[in-house]
Design a protein around this nucleic acid. Sequence first.
DNA 1: TCTGGGGTCCTAGGACCC
DNA 2: TCTGGGGTCCTAGGACCC
Length: 401
Amino acid sequence: MERAILHLDMDAFYASVEQLDHPELRGRPVVVGGLGPRGVVATASYEARVYGVRSAMPMAKARALCPQAAFLSPRFERYEEVAHRIRDVLAGYSPLVEPLSLDEAFVDLTGTERLHGPPGEVARAIHRRIRDEVGLSCSVGVGPNKLLAKLASEAAKPGGVYVLRPEDVEGFLSPLAVDRLWGVGPRTAARLSEHGVRTAGDLRQVDLGVLQSWFGTAQGAHLWRVARGVDDSPVEPEREVKSISHEETFPQDLVREDDVEREVRRLADRVAARLGEEGMLASTVFVKIRWADFTTRTRQVRLAEPTDHPFLIAEAALGLLGRGGVEAEAGIRLLGVGLSGLVPATFRPTPLFAAAGLPEVLREVRARHGPSALTIGLRGEDFPRGRGYTDPKGTKGRERP
DNA sequence: TCTGGGGTCCTAGGACCC
DNA sequence: TCTGGGGTCCTAGGACCC
């Protein structure tokens, strides 16, 4: 059966929400992003884009390009609030709504025509309601699958509606540059270009076997399919979380080992708290470290058993960093701590030690008195070692100042 | 102008088991 | 006694997405 998929993409979402909440910013360039010395642009309003300001651009460059813009720190809680209102509108048209991020979502309209009318009319109704009821501009695309719906919303930008009919797919795709296609980033586009492939039309001329010899079985097959607009992936309302992580770039590089340890414990505390909110336990702890020269390393370890314990997570993370040589002379620009191999907390194994109830206590205190009411002040030595996580290389006994 | 933070998926190599 | 191959798990890195 022919599917009808809708893709909604909010225009300059964070900046538009700021203009909605602060009328004095309307019509003015607005740049939302990190305001620290190493910040980058998250979203630039269309007024700021005129000056060349773009997402992921260093904030310093954005300031140079458009000094008269309003530079704002993101307010994610507020954006989430607005995102929920938008999803409420979408939910009125189909039970199958898949949020892709705060500002994007797919809606499966297959089979809803008798109830809500043709997909094109639904797209225009959603577009109108988000403008009237939420106060924001969006772009809406409709196509026979997710890939094409997303390309259609791209074609609708800014502030339009684009319905891509199956019979028009080939003509629509052919002139598109390959990097417009889902899964084709700068690296793949550059490699394709070396073979003289620059558009989706060019890509369609390359045999499957050749693509697979260039890019491997899976990516080759993916490229072959996207070049033809083929995509049978379903709209999935409930996607399970597979990992939880938190990372921070420091205003100044860390050089002292005790600073590193303090930050790792803080990051571990953050991810443990989020894990607890999700009602999950983690089987694997990973760390990410970025040196001053921007080289980036990751290390991970599988725990002896799943945990949500901030101490055990921090100890595992510190053990991993110990292996990587935190003692090195170079400064540390970024540290991250993450959790994967998530399982529901109902699978919690029998506690190995009395302190296993601590995460619940922390949650309780924070729920009553706020997130900063209690911070972890105990040292690693105060906590039982060697039972909660694996340490194949035996690097736990690090020297401490 | 030096380059954020949150994720997902894929590949490749080594260990280990049968 | 020597050698092979497949399957699975684990880890590190890379590409990509918003």
